[in-house]
Design a protein around this nucleic acid. Structure first.
Lengths: 220, 220
DNA sequence: CACTGTGAATTGATTCACAGCT
DNA sequence: AGCTGTGAATCAATTCACAGTG
């Protein structure tokens, strides 16, 4: 199989689900598992799992299944997280604080390793064993550390400037929690917007009120 | 147009983007706008915008465009957020705190209006003008208030029990920030998982390292 | 005339169904 | 016998292209 073919976005977003499932299974002493067992645990269909994996190679044994540890290692390699990957966080408000703490749990493959904020009162405070740095130092420090990923958790007005600085520092992929659409050439931006999520969620309650309305529901 | 036909999930998730754009445009004094202007501002193609709206009716004027206030009102009606919608939050850690504060900004159409936590130290504390309530009271209070939406921001172990209680209380749509896949009959669950997001994001940096690899990129 | 609204064409993602190994 | 890996078929979403209209 050729790694150079077109990989669906949807596949990339499912790989971490498989990784978590395999890691948990391995931790429970399961050494071999099948796509149907994974399907039962994750809610993703077994054909989907096999097809997703097939984009990257043939990792299973016919008649048997997959070696949990081996497949987990392959997925880490595919994602590029064989070694722990460091992420810069910009914005150390409550959200940023929560994200930093959560991402730094023990076995995390991807973790926030640098935190920046513009407020003098926040700079110098600690989040676990990290110290919040002034945003002025961001570009230089991120570049020097060779960090390629960042999380933006600042107010909307500040977000475009932050993204531009991150792009200059060599960051290639960004998770944006601010409520504005961001883009920069050569940077992959993923957007999570609480307001939009809550509003679209409302549709699924209002709908049920109007008897008979049909929606394309997500997979079971 | 018949509201009863099959609405794509993707369409529902874009409606709030249009709503925000129209609200901002109206606030800037724009009374009429076209699908191509909206496209330029939101990054969603004009055909896509017209098709999404067409699922629900014909709201524009040919040769002219859309009345910003009127179309915004229509989208609020479609989403079921004509009146401010209340949401229950379960879990008042840093993440929950951030979500509650953020969702309660002045003009929010959907806002967290009740907060529950299981820790005695957190119960009774305040988030803005809300008081954190004990999770034991959740089912009864949510039912009594007629709340249909909830946000789960508790650790993975507690999440399944929380969802079950919310379902019993009549909640129909849930935003799940815990790292476990949840489901309950008759409840629409949307999942946001920071770990999975960061891991899939890593793919878009590792890829660039392997020269020549091709990925289905998101729309510009 | 410039825009909306929409069938038709295309592209992308999922599911089916089975051949191929172990 | 049981599972993977994969073309073919289906289903969903987007884009094209243009007819319809204020």
């Amino acid at each position: 199989m050729d790694e150079r073919r077109r990989i669906p976005q949807a596949t990339v977003r499912r790989l971490p689900v498989y990784l978590r499932d395999l890691t948990e299974a391995a931790a429970h002493g399961v050494t071999v598992t099948s796509s149907s067992e994974m399907a039962a645990r994750t809610g993703i269909s077994s054909e989907q799992i096999r097809k997703d994996l097939a984009y990257f190679g043939a990792f299973g044994t016919r008649g048997v299944g997959y070696d949990t540890r081996l497949l987990a290692a392959e997925i880490r390699r595919i994602l590029g997280i064989e070694r722990r990957v460091g992420v810069a966080l910009v914005g150390a408000g409550h959200l940023g604080f929560a994200l930093a703490r959560y991402s730094r749990q023990e076995h995390a493959d991807v973790a926030i390793t640098m935190v920046f904020d513009r407020h003098p009162k926040v700079v110098g405070t600690r989040i676990g064993d990290l110290t919040v740095l002034p945003v002025e130092e961001m570009e230089e420090r991120v570049r020097e550390a060779g960090i390629r990923m960042a999380v933006i958790a600042v107010p909307g007005e500040e977000a475009p400037g932050v993204l531009a600085a991150l792009a200059r520092a060599g960051v290639e992929a960004v998770l944006n929690f601010s409520p504005v659409a961001l883009s920069a050439p050569g940077v992959h931006v993923q957007h999570i917007d609480l307001t939009l999520e809550l509003q679209s969620l409302a549709f699924f309650t209002s709908l049920r009120q109007m008897a008979g309305a049909a929606v394309a529901e997500e997979r079971a």
